[in-house]
Design a protein around this nucleic acid. Structure first.
Length: 291
DNA sequence: AAGCGAACCTGGCTGC
DNA sequence: TGCAGCCAGGTTCGCT
């Protein structure tokens, strides 16, 4: 479930269960996810207090009262589940019509406050790593990462500077985490629709001859911020969920204007939403409005 | 160098 | 009912 709004939603759900508590026991049920777990993973976590839980782009960062920070990425299908006092609370679209899915529970964190946090990841594209707290920004995962789209750094000017001279399609440039970090397929499609921009247009078209921002660049910066904020407020997007809704599920998917709406009428002009493939990923857009 | 496609892995859905 | 094929919120690698 994981673009920036979903990861931020998970962070907010985990924070009260984890921050300030100590990790009393760690169950690591397999040697790897997308990558091998770091050396002595469970030992380095056990007994540590979680001092802060933050987010950078699509990554979660738990700072420990040691020299380590625990970095977690959810990949495509990673979820966390929090249980307390025997009464389960769900984070993300987790449950299954036949009860709790556990075959893909890969890591269980038990905390001194009575909470149990379980990481489940069907496809195992997620990963966890331990990096030195000092120099987090320069660690292998964050060095070279682009700017935070919700930070003050995102503006028409920065978009123009990052995209100037690029002939790659706008869609691909917005997905490039080295430029802007945190957007994924859904929110790129939604932002391009809101800005009435053609996903196939060259990224460089958002910069003027001097490398300055066009009006389109200014507009795009604004709608990226809007769509992310709205999605976070809605608790993110929950896809492919076959269980009953219980309030912990995101509902931004109902607000999609084009994503996953191939053939449905464009909410502005009623022309059918198109699906094309760009660098191997589906792009949903309105041929009429986004020209 | 940039820009594709494929790969990683599992499961759900569609269509024959 | 079975089965093949396609698709999925991400990232990384390797080949033009």
């Amino acid at each position: 479930m994981p673009e920036l709004p979903e990861v931020e939603t998970v962070r907010r759900g985990l924070e009260p269960a984890m921050v300030g508590a100590r990790l009393s026991a760690i169950e690591q049920r397999r040697p790897d996810l997308r990558f091998p777990f770091p050396e002595r993973f469970a030992e380095r976590l056990t007994g540590r207090r979680v001092e802060a839980l933050s987010r950078r782009a699509k990554y979660l960062v738990a700072e420990l009262d040691s020299d380590d920070a625990l970095i977690m990425h959810l990949g495509m299908s990673g979820r966390f589940r929090v249980e307390r006092d025997g009464e389960a609370a769900q984070l993300g679209e987790f449950h299954h019509e036949h009860g709790r899915e556990s075959a893909h529970d890969h890591v269980v964190f038990r905390l001194t406050n009575g909470a149990t946090v379980t990481y489940n990841d069907t496809r195992r594209f997620g990963f966890m790593d331990l990096v030195p707290r000092a120099g987090l920004a320069g660690c292998r995962h964050f060095a070279g990462m682009g700017l935070e789209p919700l930070g003050n750094a995102l503006s028409g000017e920065t978009i123009a500077r990052l995209f100037a001279g690029k002939r790659t399609p706008l869609k691909a440039a917005l997905l490039d985490q080295r430029l802007i970090a945190g957007l994924g397929n859904i929110y790129v499609c939604e932002a391009l629709f809101r800005a009435s921009l053609d996903p196939r247009a060259p990224a460089g078209s958002l910069a003027d001859a001097a490398g300055g921002p066009t009006g389109q660049a200014e507009l795009l910066a604004g709608v990226i911020r809007d769509v992310l904020v709205e999605a976070i407020d809605a608790g993110g997007s929950t896809l492919r969920d076959h269980a009953q809704t219980d309030g912990s599920l995101g509902y931004f998917q109902h607000a999609f204007r084009v994503y996953d709406r191939e053939g449905e009428p464009c909410p502005v002009c009623a022309a059918p939403v198109r699906r094309i493939v760009q660098s191997g990923r589906s792009t949903f857009y309105c041929e009429t409005c986004q020209a």
